[in-house]
Simulated assay, not measured.
Amino acid sequence: MDIVNPSIDQLMPKVDSKYTLVVLAAKRAREILDGSKVKSDRVSTKNVTNALEEVVENKITFQRLKNGIK
């Protein structure tokens, strides 16, 4: 079994639910895939890992809207 970095214990205080975390990381990973520069200090070869690192480092945040997450 692989150890996931960053851990869920580090990620959950940054968001209001696991659903929010998944949506936020997926959207950011797609942006990185489309050519957006990685904002994290620790760069990985995996876009989802980079997105999660950005969440832990407070480089990206979310805003809850009536019809979704921005």
Score class of each variant (00 low, 15 high):
37 K>G: 00
28 R>M: 12
64 R>F: 04
38 V>G: 06
59 K>N: 09
65 L>T: 06
36 S>Q: 07
63 Q>C: 05
22 V>A: 13
28 R>E: 06
38 V>Q: 10
38 V>A: 14
44 S>E: 04
34 D>S: 10
25 A>V: 07
21 L>A: 09
30 R>E: 15
45 T>L: 07
22 V>H: 14
18 K>W: 06
25 A>E: 07
45 T>W: 02
35 G>F: 05
30 R>K: 15
39 K>D: 01
51 A>S: 12
51 A>Q: 09
52 L>T: 01
50 N>F: 14
63 Q>P: 00
59 K>C: 09
33 L>Y: 15
33 L>G: 13
22 V>W: 05
23 V>N: 05
21 L>Y: 10
54 E>F: 08
48 V>S: 15
53 E>Y: 12
44 S>M: 07
54 E>G: 04
52 L>Y: 03
60 I>M: 04
29 A>G: 12
62 F>D: 00
20 T>F: 03
49 T>N: 10
54 E>T: 07
26 A>M: 11
63 Q>R: 04
32 I>T: 12
55 V>Q: 00
36 S>N: 06
39 K>L: 15
56 V>Y: 00
60 I>W: 00
34 D>I: 00
56 V>G: 00
30 R>C: 10
46 K>F: 14
53 E>T: 01
47 N>E: 07
31 E>C: 06
35 G>P: 11
41 D>W: 02
36 S>C: 06
48 V>H: 13
66 K>V: 12
40 S>C: 14
40 S>R: 01
53 E>L: 08
57 E>L: 08
26 A>T: 08
54 E>A: 07
59 K>G: 07
65 L>Y: 01
20 T>I: 14
58 N>K: 13
59 K>Q: 11
40 S>T: 11
44 S>R: 03
20 T>Q: 13
18 K>C: 05
62 F>L: 05
57 E>N: 09
23 V>H: 04
37 K>V: 08
49 T>S: 07
33 L>P: 00
57 E>P: 01
32 I>C: 08
56 V>R: 04
19 Y>G: 11
57 E>S: 02
57 E>C: 09
25 A>W: 07
37 K>P: 00
53 E>K: 05
28 R>F: 07
30 R>N: 11
41 D>Q: 09
58 N>I: 01
59 K>W: 00
61 T>W: 04
63 Q>V: 13
57 E>F: 10
34 D>N: 13
45 T>G: 10
30 R>F: 11
56 V>S: 02
25 A>R: 07
37 K>C: 10
20 T>C: 06
53 E>I: 04
20 T>P: 01
58 N>T: 00
24 L>R: 11
42 R>C: 05
26 A>L: 07
34 D>G: 03
50 N>Y: 01
58 N>L: 10
66 K>Q: 15
38 V>E: 14
58 N>E: 14
45 T>C: 02
23 V>R: 10
51 A>M: 02
31 E>A: 08
23 V>S: 06
37 K>N: 10
24 L>Y: 02
51 A>T: 02
60 I>P: 04
54 E>M: 12
61 T>H: 02
54 E>P: 09
61 T>Q: 05
54 E>K: 06
61 T>E: 08
18 K>T: 10
45 T>H: 01
19 Y>M: 04
27 K>W: 01
41 D>A: 12
42 R>P: 00
45 T>A: 13
31 E>P: 05
28 R>V: 08
